[in-house]
């Protein structure tokens, strides 16, 4: 149990980014007492209570469910509330920095409005009418596939890590990023949806800019296989439907699913 794997750490030193802009701000070390089982977010609370009451940290659920507490811990994009101290080396300070891809608000908090703007740029589901008995039927196998994408907690860690925008501010206008590829995959693979977003994915959302590095998949705290299950199937659709617009019509009429989906009803 926890006592066994936990190194006997009584206190921890965290090296936290403080400041209102990246140029003038810098890292400050805080050493605070810690208890067994603690996560990085607990340490931030200790810092607030004991050293720096105005330390800006964004959080809500402290259970890995809301996606608010994203930061870069020892250089790795993570949820602070799901990062156990015992998983980090006890010998050196733990660095905690704000996500790099979004403008800084203060300390560990960034302005993630880029993502909320992108969320407004594609149509929601529009379901086919119910069956003759007035009911809508979907089967667990079809639903499973989409539910993987619905697990997304909008932590935006994948957006943060994707080099297309992390290293190229200029791409932001024309690129929606992995979170929204996941969202559009969910909509596209909804068994009863009637829209097509394929042309839009190519022209407006920059799907072609993604070169399948899989960095997004690696950081996703919900273990969504973003690249394999969302992006690659979408890319395939763009190829087949962009060059053969009838493919979409056919798929809708004949109800043919993605190759991976079980056809059994």
């Amino acid at each position: 149990m926890s006592e066994a794997v936990e190194p006997a750490r009584r206190e921890a030193t965290v090296r936290v980014f403080r400041g209102e802009d990246r140029a003038s701000g810098g890292f400050v070390d805080y050493t605070v007492p810690v208890d067994p089982g603690m996560v990085v977010l607990d340490v931030m609370f200790r810092v607030q209570q004991m050293r720096a009451p105005d330390l800006a940290v964004r959080w809500n659920c402290k259970a890995g469910k809301c996606g608010s507490c994203s930061a870069e811990v020892n250089g790795r994009p993570r949820l602070m509330c799901m990062t156990r101290l015992s998983s980090l080396p006890a010998t050196e300070p733990i660095t905690v920095a704000p996500m790099a891809t979004f403008p800084l608000v203060r300390d560990l908090v960034t302005d993630v409005s880029f993502n909320y703007e992108k969320a407004r740029t594609f149509p929601n589901v529009k379901l086919a009418p119910p069956g003759p008995d007035g009911k809508r039927r979907m089967y667990q196998e079809e639903v499973d596939r989409v539910q993987e994408f619905h697990k997304c907690i909008e932590c935006f860690l994948c957006q943060n890590v994707c080099h297309v925008i992390r290293d190229h501010e200029e791409n932001k206008a024309a690129y929606s990023g992995p979170r929204f590829f996941v969202k559009m995959a969910a909509l596209e693979m909804h068994p009863l949806d009637t829209h097509s977003r394929v042309e839009m994915l190519r022209a407006k959302h920059g799907l072609g800019l993604c070169n399948i590095t899989k960095c997004c998949t690696e950081v996703c705290p919900e273990s969504i296989r973003i690249t394999d299950n969302a992006i690659i199937p979408l890319k395939e659709r763009v190829v087949s439907e962009y060059y053969d617009p009838l493919a979409w019509v056919k798929r809708r009429i004949f109800g043919e699913k993605e190759p991976a989906a079980p056809a059994e009803r």
Partner: peptide, 18 residues
Amino acid sequence: VLELEEWGAMFDRTPDGL
């Protein structure tokens, strides 16, 4: 609940698809 389904929610299903 049914209205949520209309708006895109995907609840777990019965064997009959409900």
